[in-house]
Design a protein around this nucleic acid. Structure first.
Length: 274
DNA sequence: CAACCGACCTGTTCGC
DNA sequence: TGCGAACAGGTCGGTT
């Protein structure tokens, strides 16, 4: 569920709330949520460590710890991090709980059990497999054009590949391709430099606007930030989930199809089929 | 390298 | 109303 803007929002909220907190107890309710080390070691090693700051890389959250190490968290499809008082009710899908020295609990709720946590010595060892950060200043239109030029696969599945570019998921990929006027089935190396530049700009504009709106919360989703505030980008979606509704640019009905096994929304007039 | 598939999981929605 | 099938925003590993 959460893509870059949602994870960015969560990281910012947690950073303010968790900096300086010490973890006083750890409870693992679903063992497989803890990818590494084994759950007992995970709990024992985490206790007593403090949180220095919280950052995002792609769709990963990284809690930097004192005196060493990092807690990496990936929410996958249904994960949520909730910062709540210890005596409040616990969501039935809670998989891991971190008790903090101020009486609060950081609860990881994840109905589908796809989410993962890992306690690692060096976060970069895991995160270095990811592609570039789309919002980094160092990520340029020329770099994207160069990256696309060596790949002949279809553009949408490529943008979803976290090794290629970090942070885009199904929603923002469709939004960016619509804004750039590029059909999701286009071959990556068929894009002109001008199209690559448009795509680069579209990706950054969509992500920046979504971060400013604190992410996308759809009616049928449970996404909220750690403080329970929903995102407001849903009202500004141009194509995602809008099958049959008019394109915001030309009025043509938005269509839904399947690309790479993923539900895909586009405007057949603005995004010419290859 | 590219494309496709199943696996990992549960909750919700849809069609009969 | 009830029930099974289909589907969901992510990722990985295996096969063709």
């Amino acid at each position: 569920m959460p893509e870059l803007p949602e994870v960015e929002t969560i990281a910012a909220e947690l950073n303010g709330a968790l900096t300086g907190r010490t973890i006083t107890a750890v409870a693992v309710h679903w063992a497989r949520t803890v990818a590494a080390p084994d759950p007992a070691t995970f709990a024992a090693e985490l206790c007593g460590r403090s949180i220095c700051y919280v950052t995002r890389r792609g769709k990963w959250l990284a809690l930097s710890l004192e005196p060493a190490g990092a807690l990496l968290i990936h929410l996958r499809m249904s994960g949520r991090l909730l910062l709540e008082p210890a005596d409040g009710p616990e969501d039935p899908h809670t998989r891991v709980v971190l008790a903090l020295d101020n009486g609060q609990r950081l609860r990881f709720s994840d109905p589908r059990k796809f989410g993962r946590m890992a306690l690692v010595d060096c976060a970069e060892e895991v995160l270095s497999d990811l592609g570039p950060e789309p919002l980094a200043e160092t990520f340029t239109p020329e770099q994207l054009a160069q990256m696309l030029g060596t790949r002949r696969t279809r553009i949408k599945p490529l943008l979803l590949d976290q090794h290629f570019l970090a942070g885009l998921g199904n929603i923002y990929t469709d939004e960016a391709l619509w804004q750039a006027g590029i059909h999701p089935l286009r071959r990556a190396n068929s894009l002109t430099d001008a199209e690559a530049a448009r795509l680069h700009q579209a990706i950054r504009q969509v992500l920046t606007a979504a971060v400013a709106a604190r992410g996308t919360t759809l009616e049928d989703t449970r996404y909220v930030g750690p403080n329970g505030v929903p995102g407001e980008f849903a009202a500004r979606l141009a194509v995602y989930g809008r099958a049959g509704q008019p394109c915001r640019r030309c009025g043509t009905a938005i269509m839904r199809c399947v690309v790479g096994g993923r539900g895909t929304y586009l405007c057949a007039r603005c995004q010419e089929k290859p």
